[in-house]
Write a protein that binds this DNA or RNA. Sequence first.
DNA 1: TCACTATATCAGC
DNA 2: GCTGATATAGTGA
Length: 107
Amino acid sequence: MQISDFQERVYRAVRRIPKGRVTTYKLLAAAIDCQSPRAVGQALRHNPFAPEVPCHRVIRADLTVGGFMGERQGPVWRRKIDLLRREGVFFRRGVLTDAARVYNPIL
DNA sequence: TCACTATATCAGC
DNA sequence: GCTGATATAGTGA
């Protein structure tokens, strides 16, 4: 499968998320001028540049974890939380503890 | 065209 | 606070 310009835009935006910060699908979609955060999620799901593209730093707008590598639960999905915790981003019951950790890609 | 999706938002309970 | 229905954009068959 070959990636489109849209997905290239998504990966470029995700790549510039600083360590220790997270962003949301909604903000990410707004950064690439896309009205549909679901399309962003699909692009990250087919992410061929993992882990160069830190797709684990993307969560939902309601500050819940969301999914990781196609899994919404299970050990693989749990790894996403573990990676973020290692960077200083903590979750409680699948919800981001500190909302100030959210990074705005538009800025 | 149809049916998905790592979402967002709203209505109802 | 939770479940579901709907909107919306991109992608593959």
